[in-house]
């Protein structure tokens, strides 16, 4: 009996529990990157640098301190962890939407993979991990840049990295699940249509209290839960609510993964 067959994990469906070779999808990606695909990681590093510089130099000087649930913190320190959460989300979503769609519909990659002992669970888990990895690399670059620009507030901020990985995993899973419904490239117009408002209105740039009566809508955004956790860790101002936020992200991760595996089975193994 493997660890993953333990009772509490029974909520995970058999497609995922019996996945034995998801690492092969990562191995494939490594072979692709070796041949020149690594360039995306370089471009991914400049994004946080530009973001953080613009905040530190520009907004930080204009805005001053922000009241975050009673404590006053410098604006740059307030926004940076939120941008890191958004960066993890972006990296994961780009990889799990456009790239997955290309591999699924045009390259017919997964049809070929599923003709081997690989299963729908291997493909779903492997490709989601793959997108997570991209998000994680972006986040790590982000955290290093934050540290270098002296925008971290406490040692707890190191834990922002695992949380960023969770955010990347959740958004990869949701992104890939959504991609299984895409019929043509035109459908990708919906991706920024969802991502941009989520980026702007997840308490990213101002505290939840400033939304007043509309705060509940903000709390529906998955990114908000990531932002709230990251911000707490950055200031070192921990609370039990952060566990709930992590729980929401974990639930989205498991749900998205399960759903993706089932969709792959329906689409590619009819």
């Amino acid at each position: 009996m493997s660890l993953i067959d333990v009772a509490p994990l029974r909520i995970v469906p058999p497609q995922i529990r019996h996945a034995r070779r998801p690492q092969r999808m990562l191995e494939r990606q490594w072979m692709v990157n070796r041949a020149g695909g690594w360039i995306i990681f370089v471009t991914g590093f400049f994004e946080p640098l530009f973001y953080l510089l613009s905040i530190r130099v520009g907004f930080g000087a204009l805005v001053g301190d922000v009241d975050d649930g009673g404590t006053l913190i410098p604006y740059a320190e307030f926004v940076a962890p939120a941008l890191m959460a958004a960066s993890a989300m972006n990296g994961a979503v780009y990889e799990s939407t456009m790239n997955i769609f290309f591999k699924m519909k045009h390259e017919k990659l997964y049809d070929a993979v599923l003709a081997t002992p690989m299963t729908s669970g291997d493909v779903a888990l492997g490709e989601i991990l793959n997108a997570t990895l991209r998000g994680a690399v972006y986040s790590a670059a982000f955290l290093v840049t934050m540290g270098a620009l002296d925008m971290t507030g406490s040692w707890w901020s190191i834990l922002m990295l695992p949380v960023a990985v969770l955010i990347a995993f959740s958004f990869s899973a949701i992104g890939m699940a959504a991609t299984t419904f895409m019929r043509s490239w035109a459908d990708f117009e919906y991706v920024p249509a969802v991502m941009l408002p989520m980026f702007l209105f997840s308490a990213t740039f101002y505290p939840l209290s400033s939304y007043g009566d509309w705060a509940w809508i903000v709390q529906l955004s998955p990114l908000y839960h990531g932002v709230a956790t990251m911000r707490g860790l950055n200031t070192g101002d921990l609370s039990w609510a952060m566990l709930a936020h992590v729980g929401v992200l974990a639930a989205l991760a498991v749900g998205g993964l399960t759903f993706t595996a089932r969709r792959i089975e329906r689409l590619l193994l009819p």
Binding site: R21, R24, E27, R28, M31, V32, A35, G37, E107, K108, L109, D111, A112, V113, T116, P117, M118
Partner: peptide, 19 residues
Amino acid sequence: QLDEQLTVQDNLIVYGRYF
């Protein structure tokens, strides 16, 4: 359904890895 992101040889190698 060849893997267009890989070379001819890598296509064969990665496929073997799936087994």
